[in-house]
Amino acid sequence: MEPILSARNIVKRFGGLTAVNQVSLDVYPGEVVGLVGDNAAGKSTLIKCISGVYQPEEGEVYFQGQRVHFARPIDARKAGIETIYQDLALAGNLNVPANIFLGREIKKAYLGGVVHTLDEDTMLRESDKLLKDLEIRFPSLHMQIDKLSGGQRQAVAIARAMYWNARFIIMDEPTNNLGVVEQRKVLELIRRLKAQNVPVILISHTLPDVFAVTDRIVVMHRGRKVTEKRTADTNSEEIVRYMVGALDDTRATA
């Protein structure tokens, strides 16, 4: 089977520091890949090289078999790669449909297209349907994002990505700062994405979460990929040893 996303030999330097050093990563359809590592291991930088925030100095990115260059994040999104960032990138003062449709609002035309108004009803209906499909319930979709819990916000962010036909989702620490119940809900959402055949890269510090939902785990240490294991074939003790640099497959094979 062809990988849906393939990053090959990515190198990204900031001045003298090599943040990402010759990292390759393949993700296959319907797969959830965990990307773990200590702080400053280069996880976020690698992700940003894929999603168009940074331009890698070396290496190539292939998406659905095509070589791609994303000059800006919007280009990656147009191609179908959605990144759900830690800070969620939601407007806290707007309600749920307004966030789901932000930047791509549905409009109604009047006076032969001279005047456009927001089609709030349609956006509300679509949002409601979408959230129901994801089995997420809200007290009211009219609530401001600021007034929602962290899990609810995460759900909105995921729903937004789904609505816009994301063919690939990158999630950066989605369970951070969440309570236990909410963490579980988010993990359920990831499983549901997988069930809908949407591949996910999950960046997380929380190893139990990673083990709960991923098919494979990639560990980075100081900018390099030090191992890649099938989740079923490893355990958290081993992964931790990779994370702190005690184990390193690249060294072993060198």
Binding site: P73, I74, R77, Y85, D87, L88, A89, L90, A91, G92, N93, L94, A98, N99, L102, G103, R104, E105, L118
Partner: peptide, 17 residues
């Protein structure tokens, strides 16, 4: 709507296109 969005979270508005 975009006026509110920019005031609420400029970065979010930018990322949303």
């Amino acid at each position: 709507r975009h006026t509110y969005a920019i005031g609420g979270n400029r970065e979010a508005a930018l990322r949303a296109g």
